[in-house]
């Protein structure tokens, strides 16, 4: 098989509050022989909040990010569900609306860029599941995670709205997603099922609606705990931050002590591939990863 190459859009969080996400992504790409070219020119995707303020500006900025993947002639991979949503949404809107695309391109021309629509946008999880292949990954596992009950937490913006996300996520059904479960199994782990695995963590309303956000976080961790999970795994750094850092507020909001280690998807894969905790940045978690 030809070597897989992607343009990596890190998003902001992987460069700031979750450095372990970028570290572990690069570590497993290296082990798996996937080449990731960092898009250092990219800006923030707006996280669906800039979109609330200035929709057109968010389209221009996201289109600019995609331009840099197009220049490389590569598919863009994201490692944050919200980056995935906003980038894929921009691509979809521009690809289906020539008038809007022309308006955006008129702005991009000012900086010598043109959005063409030639690069696909997909989350790294789906690049692993669909392009790399779980069978191949399973064969490379050195340390099967067979001692662990692992709770997948999918994160909204990889699976909904399915009409958009199905363009890149292989038709994952948002009411019964399976990719992350399959990945856990490929890593030798035991996937646990619970009602909150495809629900919202509350991240986006944390500042303006802290109670709602904390209850959602609490319900998610409680659901995983009740399903006997040893830890959780998520492809989204925003879900990670909410579940890893906010368990005190979450416990208070739902009236029950909840707390579980929460790993980033590449950290889990890295453990199975035999990466060291240091290579995966496991020391960066607020809820300590005490099982390795």
């Amino acid at each position: 098989m030809e070597k897989l190459r992607y343009a990596l859009y890190t998003g902001c969080t992987a460069r700031e509050s979750t450095p372990e996400l970028l570290k572990s992504t690069l570590a497993i790409a290296d082990k798996l022989g996937i080449e990731l070219v960092l898009l250092d020119e990219a800006s923030c995707c707006g996280a669906s909040h800039l979109q609330d303020y200035d929709d057109f500006l968010s389209l221009v900025l996201n289109a600019r990010n995609i331009c840099y993947a197009e220049k490389l002639g590569l598919t863009m991979v994201t490692i944050c569900n919200t980056c995935q949503l906003n980038t894929a949404m921009t691509k979809h809107r521009l690809d289906t609306n020539p008038e809007l695309k022309a308006k955006v391109n008129a702005k991009l021309a000012e900086v010598g860029l043109e959005y063409k629509g030639t690069s696909e946008v997909t989350h790294f999880l789906y690049a692993l599941v669909q392009d790399f292949g779980l069978e191949k990954l399973a064969k490379m596992v050195k340390v099967p995670l067979s001692h662990f009950n692992i709770a997948p937490f999918y994160g909204c913006h990889n699976i909904r709205p399915s009409e958009l996300q199905n363009l890149s996520n292989g038709g994952e059904n948002p009411y019964n997603p399976t990719s992350l479960d399959d990945l856990i199994i490929a890593c030798g782990g035991v996937n646990v099922d619970y009602a909150e695995k495809n629900k919202c963590c509350g991240f986006h309303a944390e500042l303006q609606s802290p109670h709602t956000a904390a209850v959602l976080t609490g319900n998610a961790i409680a659901g995983a705990m009740d399903a006997n999970a040893d830890w959780m795994v998520t492809p989204c750094p925003l879900c990670h931050l909410k579940l890893d850092v906010q368990h005190h507020a979450a416990s208070k909001a739902i009236g029950r002590d909840v707390k579980l280690p929460v790993l980033h998807m590449p950290q889990m894969v890295g453990l199975a591939l035999g990466c060291t905790p240091a290579e995966l940045g496991l020391n960066h978690h607020v809820t300590k990863v005490d099982f390795v």
């Binding site: 700031e16 509050s17 450095p19 057109f56 500006l57 900025l61 702005k107 960066h284």
Partner: peptide
């Protein structure tokens, strides 16, 4: 746990001048 970037270490996008220009015009 090394999850906060101090202001003086804040990373910046490459070709930031493009972004500034686009924010202004768009």
């Amino acid at each position: 746990n090394g999850k906060i970037v101090m202001p003086w270490n804040m990373p910046k996008s490459k070709n930031l001048d493009e972004i500034k220009k686009l924010v202004k015009s768009s």
